[in-house]
Nucleic acid binder design. Structure first.
Lengths: 235, 235
DNA sequence: TAGTGGTCTAGACCACAGA
DNA sequence: CTGTGGTCTAGACCACTAT
């Protein structure tokens, strides 16, 4: 997809690792060997290797080499930016989205301070898997960034629409995970089966130019929640 | 501390950002300017800037510059590797650690597959803040990596001991966050106040040479749990 | 000692934003 | 058009691991 040399090298190495051509526990070819193999400079090889290390494929050890790590633990990777649609497709489960609200609101002072705008879209959706509503998503979008929305777009994937139709590029998100008592709204729109609490993931999503454009509150049924993180000590 | 040039530049820029010398929303000096300012090459400046971007201090935008981000949301950063001691000190609260178990065990087949060893230390500790036990930590260390442990070390910080006394360098950790029903042990050792579930953070910690050496299960009281994540779309 | 990854340099060309 | 960041090169020296 990308013409970048180091990304192409990264992708080829990922395929070889996932295809077990390079086994976990073994060492990757040295930077010098990869340099000749891909007919490129060492810094370019190193960019690809750094990306592999950041994504948990290898661990680089000075004087030794790059060790391939086991990826078994990552059968269900949610770390990072993952939309419900991507998640559901990864799980290979039939899923469904129900739109409960789609309206324009004036942001409360709380939301305004986070998004810096007052005209917002409010979208409330529940997510059904195996005939149970297990996630309640409450999204707020800045209307100047997202002038148009309809029920059909909300039912499929708003992100797909924004990226493909509007050319908006999502860059990064701050997330906060807590547990709260279930509200009346939660009890009404989710199948809680008597559970008294929900896991709440709040996030602020930013665009490529660093401007915030979305605030999301995702309320999960306790027993269906799982979050995977890969933390790396950066020196 | 480090003689690396790019880390020194990174640290100086962090100080200037946190000291508001560079204000949020404004742009950092361009790479060319920083190059002359620090009398170094552009790639070295870029290494420092990439580190700033990864840690959420700036957002780099092609054709424009590097924008300083607001850090208000990060008043309570747990993302990454944070020991209970670091966390408690950051909160500025008086805290206490109670050691319930400290013994050698043969790893179950489940643990062995994760750590690849059978001789393990098992340490069970609860963490008290404001006279309430809110976290139950169950740690397993590989005995060949950590030959000696005693109650005193467990009461303060095992990590401090390992890093300063044994020279072990922690490199990265895989974490998984879920919610489980409280066990009898949870009810006994935590002040649950009738709560029926606990947040469970399981993690595998690796050393610099990529070998796993610790498995931890950290069980948190629901209402005292908070996890902050900073996810960045890597292209 | 030979081989590994870590840092650093001085240059080059490209893609993009803005006046 | 100029200035910005993104990629790439071909070297150099250093720190560490193994033998």
């Amino acid at each position: 997809m990308k013409s970048n040399k180091y990304q192409a090298i990264y992708q080829q190495l990922v395929m070889k690792i996932e295809g077990q051509d390079f086994m976990a526990g073994n060492k990757l070819p040295s930077e010098h060997e990869l340099m000749e193999l891909f007919r490129t400079s060492r810094e370019t090889v190193r960019k690809a290797l750094n990306q592999l290390a950041q994504n948990g494929y290898i661990q680089k050890v000075r004087g030794k080499g790059s060790i391939v790590l086991t990826r078994d633990k990552f059968d269900f990777p949610i770390s990072g930016l993952v939309s419900f649609k991507e998640l559901a497709e990864k799980m290979g489960r039939p899923w469904e989205t129900v739109v409960h609200e789609l309206e324009t609101v004036d942001g409360s002072s709380d939301l305004e301070s986070k998004l810096g705008e007052s005209e917002l879209w409010k979208v409330v959706r529940s997510r059904r898997v195996d005939d149970e509503s297990i996630i309640l998503d409450k999204d707020y979008f800045i209307k100047s960034q997202v002038p148009y929305l309809d029920k059909k777009i909300c039912t499929s994937s708003i992100y797909d629409y924004l990226e493909s139709e509007k050319g908006l590029q999502i860059a990064f998100a701050d997330k906060e995970v807590t547990v709260e008592e279930a509200t009346d709204e939660d009890k009404q729109l989710l199948d809680l089966n008597g559970l008294t609490h929900v896991v709440v993931v709040k996030s602020i999503v930013h665009l490529d130019d660093a401007s915030p454009f979305q605030f999301t509150e995702s309320r999960h049924r306790l027993d269906k929640f799982r979050f995977v993180d890969f933390a790396r000590r950066m020196k």
